[in-house]
């Protein structure tokens, strides 16, 4: 356990170098966010006051996007998948086969440290932005909702990491994984609720999407926070989230053991 804490600490030190980069990244990300919010405001402006779209008032809709931005800052993989693929391609993985250190846990620690630094930096521009939007920012109804939402965000982060890790392991078989990373990301972008809350989809489509792992990355934790998801649906969602974490974990382990069989330690 101690050695992984050490990895976490090293990860923090390494990513602190990029703090200004992170700050700009988070600040730049607010430009399209503001665009989307303007788009929604003008849609609601065309309706009668207090209109509800897909179960969301204007304030809830705006809060949805603000929370997606926050959860995304906490959980999104930044460079992790590229680095894992590069480790495999350049033969860097070899040293982990010789050391008493598990590569998956090692990467998870680095991911955690990277997210910790990124979130800290991103909070500066994002909270300024939220202050500007405060009349449209919904607070959680009670402490229980908030703690369930926080738990669900942590689980979303773990799931996000396992998915990215598994895709990156394709580097054992293909030379350039970037196209696979982008294809995966495209599906994630729409099915996780990054682009819009999944409630505004037609009901049948929504049911299908909820069976995939993606909604449990963003839509679900945000829905829990907003109180949109409660009662039985909430517990079913937590179950789905845990189930997908297990599936993704097993998938990652399986890919790794299969991949090592084809691994040739190029350059190592």
């Amino acid at each position: 356990m101690g050695k992984y804490l050490h990895v976490f600490g090293l990860g923090i030190q390494n990513t602190l170098v990029y703090r200004v980069n992170f700050l700009f990244r988070a600040a730049f990300g607010l430009i399209p966010l503001a665009g989307t919010l303007f788009l929604w405001k003008s849609i609601y402006a065309g309706k009668e006051p207090g209109a509800i779209l897909g179960g969301y008032t204007l304030a809830q809709m705006i809060s949805y996007y603000l929370l997606v931005t926050l959860v995304d800052a906490v959980t999104a993989v930044a460079e992790d998948d590229w680095q894992i693929a590069a480790d495999i391609k350049d033969g860097q993985v070899s040293q982990f086969l010789l050391k008493p250190m598990d590569y998956l846990t090692y990467r998870l620690c680095l991911y955690g440290s990277g997210r910790a630094v990124y979130t800290t930096m991103a909070l500066i521009p994002v909270s300024v932005f939220i202050v500007f939007q405060r009349e449209n920012f919904v607070l959680p109804s009670d402490a229980a909702t908030l703690s369930l939402a926080l738990a669900s965000i942590v689980m979303a982060g773990i799931l996000q990491f396992f998915i990215a890790y598994t895709v990156a392991l394709l580097a054992f078989w293909v030379l350039d994984v970037s196209t696979f990373i982008f294809i995966q990301f495209a599906f994630e972008y729409i099915a996780s609720g990054h682009l819009f809350p999944l409630d505004i989809l037609p009901a049948a489509l929504q049911k299908v999407v909820l069976l995939t792992p993606y909604p449990y990355l963003l839509y679900f934790p945000v829905g829990v926070y907003l109180g949109q998801i409660h009662g039985e649906a909430l517990w079913r969602g937590i179950g789905m989230q845990a189930g997908w974490i297990l599936m993704a974990y097993l998938g990652a382990r399986w890919m790794w053991s299969r991949g090592l069989r084809t691994y040739t330690a190029v350059g190592g």
Binding site: S42, I43, G46, K47, L53, A186, I190, L195, I200, P202
Partner: peptide, 18 residues
């Protein structure tokens, strides 16, 4: 395709944006 899908979904809830 994603960009078009986004707009299509939006227009499922409104007839006109601005």
């Amino acid at each position: 395709g994603l960009q078009i899908a986004f707009m299509t979904v939006l227009y499922g809830h409104t007839d006109s944006i601005a």
